[in-house]
Design a protein around this nucleic acid. Structure first.
Lengths: 257, 257
DNA sequence: AGAATATAACACAGATTTTGTGATTTTGTG
DNA sequence: CACAAAATCACAAAATCTGTGTTATATTCT
């Protein structure tokens, strides 16, 4: 078992039990305490957990869980599947908007293969990965950088969006119930909505596990989207309410890669 | 001497003499020809030089010299000195604009120590280094990414600047003659000028070696700046023409770090 | 104060990167 | 076209980097 696997496992343990004991995991993985100390130090620095005497804890529900560095590690396979499916909506030559979020940054990687393409985003991860990639015209949206979402937001971002127009916007959401999608942050909601307004077509990407949750602000009615992509069939109530409209629901199948 | 030092040295040799011989540098560094071959191959791939039979050349004045990956390597000490001097104009709490260029990205690092501070920039290197640094409010300017300058430019950038206002703008220039500073790229000039317009105070940072050169577009009259910082006294003609105005000229002294 | 835990410093094995050597291919020149 | 110089290739050797454990020292809790 390599270092990264061990660290991922530590995170998984933490998610289940909220806290781990140092001696405990050192024994479980058959490595020295010092090694675990170093794992925990690094994970703490990455903002994933908090070290306490004798072990570490994770404060679910607080800033940690909503921290992008943490989310980044989770459910990479689902993200990949959603991204692959979303990419089918895109043809070379198109202009595409992508919002913040780790889901979105996976999508960026996938779309980069559809070159030539123009990508408009406020997502710092995408800017870093795709800048200078030939065949990809990268338009960064400015704004105030938010470490929490690893993206740029604010008036500058919204103004920039008001001057641009894309063929399709991909928007992701952390929560949805019934026919509404939600987000906890107002500035993020405004940016996502601005992207939707600035695109001919819109597509929502949402992990099926996010259904049944809500958050402070309503992001959008699912019926506003041309396409909704998820990894499992939508809950019955959502599906029913959406049934009559124009919105196309697509279920991503995990690719065997 | 490690690999990167050796490569940096090769570049320095190239800058002085336009061309190097393979046998020559292999002997000078006491390594095999094969190693030098590999160095030259990699540097060529990085766009820094051109391999020719028996050695390598650099074509000053063509695209090579204007490539940011190349400039990044050059004269780190001078850049550092200019940046340290420029930082003296900044107090914690100020809002500062910084333009594209490797000089500017060094300045970003130095200014990050003056926290709390607000940094407005179109420079991708600065965004990457300083995002998430506590005490630094980072405002990215959007725009179309330019690999050549590793920064963002265009209407989006200029519009964003028209909505912002800073205490001071730091602008760098690759060429100056008499009282005028020049730049080869129109979009870059527009962005720099927009920064100057959006700031209460302006400061030009210029390597003394850039004097006596020109480029296609005039960037500004040196007298427009409140401060001009260089590493050596300005040429006589420039100094004379500037003498009567309000512009303060500061010579950076190399710090012994 | 005394036990438990955390940090720091060094040592070491294994992986990775960098380099050198000699064989082989390519290129330029008379 | 032949021959020498230079470049490339392939693999082995050397140097460097990484991750780990051990021991010594410091810190924190009770």
């Amino acid at each position: 078992m390599k270092r990264e696997e061990r660290r991922q496992e530590i995170i998984n343990l933490l998610i289940e039990s909220r806290a781990v004991e140092l001696d405990d995991i050192a024994a479980r993985f058959g490595v020295s305490k010092m090694t675990i100390h170093r794992d925990l130090d690094d994970l703490e620095r990455a903002g994933v957990l908090r070290k306490v005497r004798g072990g570490a804890t994770i404060d679910a529900g607080t800033q940690f869980e909503s921290d992008f560095r943490f989310r980044e590690l989770q459910e990479a396979d689902v993200k990949r599947a959603l991204a692959e499916t979303a990419a089918e909506l895109v043809e070379p030559g198109m202009t595409v908007m992508i919002n913040d979020g780790s889901m979105a940054s996976v999508l960026g990687d996938v779309l980069a293969l559809k070159k030539p393409i123009t990508l408009i985003t406020n997502n710092a991860a995408i800017m870093e990965r795709l800048k200078g990639v030939s065949g990809v015209t990268l338009i960064g949206l400015g704004g105030v950088y938010s470490a929490k979402f690893n993206a740029y937001f604010g008036i500058v971002t919204e103004e920039a969006l008001s001057r641009l127009r894309a063929d399709i916007a991909f928007v992701s959401a952390p929560a949805a119930t019934g026919r509404l999608a939600y987000h906890m942050d107002e500035a993020v909601v405004r940016t996502k909505r601005a992207m939707m307004n600035a695109s001919r077509q819109t597509c929502l990407l949402i992990n099926s596990r996010r259904f049944g949750h809500t958050a402070l602000h309503v992001l959008a009615d699912l019926a506003e989207f041309d396409t909704v992509i998820s990894d499992k069939p939508l809950p019955h109530d959502t599906a029913a309410e959406l049934g009559s409209g124009k919105t196309v629901v697509t279920i991503a199948k995990e690719t065997t890669t």
